[in-house]
Nucleic acid binder design. Structure first.
Length: 359
DNA sequence: AAGGCGGGGCA
DNA sequence: TGCCCAGCCTT
């Protein structure tokens, strides 16, 4: 099959059956495409849509994003994960304001140089917003191509990835690059899906080698797996007399970087040890201690078993509360801060108890 | 419980 | 260049 045949089949299919009404498909500026591509990097369309709407409503243009408080940016990202994406988005908006007079750069190299944007995302932004001739290679395209060409080997392996880029560039048409880019992403998202691929709806069916060999589900070759370790931690939900909960801001990089989290006690789960730890590390005297069932939060590289500990604080007006990275958080009237998913879950539960929704 | 997802950072 | 890291959702 010639490259031109591949793309024209795909374009015809997209005209008739593609998605044309996603929020970022109207008013396709580089900024709007950029934000959508970053959100879509690890997250499916259905999940992204409400986040995207809220984000664009708050930050209608690059300048308003650049000027925003990072806490507000992270707040609007809460629950999406990979919070470095939000920090990089904010950082890049500032670079664009200062180095490019607020205009999104128009060359591939300049776009790749922005933090949080790699080769595929840069290509997608310029192809979709400006119809520039660049190939993309995201997860959807990798799936379509490994199946179409029956390419063995995990796509994360450098040699496999090189081959995929070659195919991607070879197939991307010089004209209608924007529509083609949308089309191949749509095909991967709606027809050539990871499970239950709808091959009978596929415009490439007749030339698909995986289909011909009845091996569609064997592609892409899955990543070699390894067992991940379990780490344990104790999260303290310390409430003052107004039922506010103590939060601490995490360091700017690493897990949950820049997000607000609960104090993590480095001690045993005995009443005595917990009291002593709070006294020594937080200068807070606590009582009414309740140790709850652990909950498991899983990252790509380890499980985190969190033991929630609820307690009341007696000596609230301690000097340690004046620190900038510490705050009493009102779960009934939450303010704009980024929260890690399990922390948000614990705070929501705490709020439900306080307001009598559950007991 | 396992798998998928794009890019950054460092040896 | 090759590895490790990150966090959520879907299956």
């Amino acid at each position: 099959m010639k490259p031109g045949n591949f793309s024209s089949s795909l374009l015809r299919w997209h005209d008739a059956h593609g998605r044309h009404d996603l929020p970022w498909q109207s008013n396709m500026t580089a900024y709007r495409i950029w934000v959508s591509e970053i959100m879509l990097q690890q997250t499916q369309v259905a999940t992204v849509i409400p986040y995207y709407q809220r984000f664009m409503q708050q930050f209608a243009d690059i300048e308003s994003l650049a000027k925003a408080d990072i806490d507000l940016v992270l707040h609007l990202w809460t629950g999406l994960g990979y919070y470095a994406r939000a920090r990089n988005l904010h950082k890049a908006a500032n670079i664009i304001c200062h180095d490019y007079a607020g205009q999104f750069p128009e060359t591939l190299d300049a776009v790749i140089a922005l933090p949080g944007i790699g080769r595929s995302t840069a290509a997608a932004i310029l192809a979709l917003s400006d119809n520039q001739h660049h190939a993309i290679l995201d997860g959807n395209v990798k799936r379509v191509l490994t199946r179409f060409f029956a390419i063995d080997g995990w796509p994360g392996k450098p040699e496999v990835e090189r081959l995929l880029w070659q195919h991607a560039e070879n197939l991307t048409p010089i004209e209608n690059t924007a529509q083609y880019t949308q089309a191949i992403m749509d095909l991967g998202a709606t027809v050539c899906t990871r499970t239950n691929a709808k091959c009978h709806q596929c415009p490439l069916l007749q030339h698909c080698r995986a289909y011909a060999n009845d091996r569609v589900t064997n592609y892409p070759t899955s990543k070699p797996k390894k067992t991940i370790p379990v780490k344990k931690t104790i999260m303290l939900l310390l409430r003052n007399k107004d039922n506010q909960v103590l939060l601490q801001q995490r360091p700017p990089s690493g897990i949950w970087g820049g997000l607000w989290s609960l104090p993590e006690a480095q001690c045993d789960t005995t009443q005595k040890a917990l009291c002593a730890w709070s006294q020594n590390e937080l200068k807070l005297t606590i009582n009414d201690i309740t140790i709850a069932q652990p909950l498991r939060h899983t990252f790509s590289h380890f499980h985190l078993d969190i033991t929630p500990v609820y307690a009341s604080v007696i000596n609230e007006s301690s000097a340690i509360m004046e620190q900038a990275d510490t705050v009493w958080y009102n779960t009934c009237k939450p303010d704009a801060r980024g929260l890690a998913a399990p922390v948000k879950k614990l705070l929501d539960t705490h709020n439900d108890v306080m307001t009598g929704v559950i007991t």
